[in-house]
Simulated assay, not measured.
Amino acid sequence: MAVETFVPAASVITVTPSAARHFEQKLGDSQQIIRFATRESGCTGYAYVVDFAEAPEAGDEVIRVSDKLTVAVARNAIPMLRDTEIDYVKEGINGVLKFNNPNIAEACGCGESFSVKS
């Protein structure tokens, strides 16, 4: 007899505890969500877009990170962001979001834009 294992679908992105705390602080007590998208930009093709939103848009992938944090990934950005880890790190006195994206084929020198593997 074979044993079948249920494996739930993985989220498109993951948010580290540090990034979750950062977003929760930014949202405060609002009922907004964080929405991730991409847009054409820069010398290599695309840039990340991080926005506050009242609700996800049709087709967005919605991820409940914690009781205080829900994020959405724009439908057209899912292929570019799949398996991306979003982190928040301190660099000196500054805090920055880091997108650890395994889909990147090339990034510009200033870090503003990226292209993805075909």
Score class of each variant (00 low, 15 high):
3 V>N: 03
3 V>L: 10
3 V>C: 02
5 T>A: 06
6 F>L: 13
6 F>Y: 14
7 V>I: 13
7 V>Q: 07
7 V>Y: 04
9 A>I: 11
9 A>C: 04
10 A>S: 12
10 A>E: 15
10 A>R: 15
11 S>H: 11
11 S>E: 11
12 V>K: 13
14 T>M: 06
15 V>S: 03
16 T>D: 09
16 T>Y: 03
16 T>W: 05
17 P>K: 10
19 A>V: 09
21 R>L: 11
23 F>R: 00
25 Q>T: 11
26 K>I: 06
27 L>T: 05
29 D>S: 14
30 S>D: 07
32 Q>D: 15
32 Q>R: 13
32 Q>V: 00
32 Q>F: 05
34 I>M: 07
35 R>N: 01
35 R>Y: 07
36 F>E: 08
36 F>T: 05
37 A>E: 04
37 A>L: 06
37 A>I: 07
38 T>W: 02
38 T>N: 11
38 T>Y: 01
41 S>Q: 08
41 S>K: 07
42 G>L: 04
44 T>G: 00
44 T>D: 08
44 T>K: 10
45 G>C: 06
45 G>Y: 14
46 Y>N: 08
46 Y>W: 03
46 Y>H: 09
49 V>K: 02
52 F>M: 10
55 A>F: 10
55 A>Q: 15
55 A>D: 14
56 P>T: 08
56 P>Q: 07
57 E>W: 05
58 A>C: 01
58 A>F: 04
59 G>Y: 06
59 G>T: 07
59 G>R: 06
61 E>L: 00
61 E>Y: 01
62 V>K: 15
63 I>Q: 11
64 R>K: 13
64 R>T: 13
64 R>D: 12
65 V>L: 07
66 S>D: 11
66 S>W: 12
69 L>I: 07
69 L>M: 05
71 V>L: 10
72 A>R: 00
72 A>I: 11
73 V>N: 00
73 V>M: 09
74 A>C: 03
75 R>Q: 09
77 A>T: 03
79 P>S: 01
80 M>E: 02
81 L>S: 11
82 R>N: 10
84 T>S: 04
85 E>C: 02
85 E>G: 00
85 E>P: 00
86 I>K: 02
87 D>K: 05
88 Y>F: 01
89 V>W: 04
89 V>Q: 15
91 E>M: 09
91 E>L: 03
93 I>D: 15
93 I>A: 06
94 N>T: 12
95 G>L: 08
96 V>Q: 13
97 L>E: 09
97 L>S: 07
102 P>C: 04
102 P>I: 14
104 I>N: 12
105 A>T: 01
107 A>M: 10
107 A>Q: 13
109 G>F: 13
109 G>C: 02
110 C>S: 14
112 E>W: 10
113 S>H: 03
114 F>I: 02
114 F>H: 05
116 V>A: 12
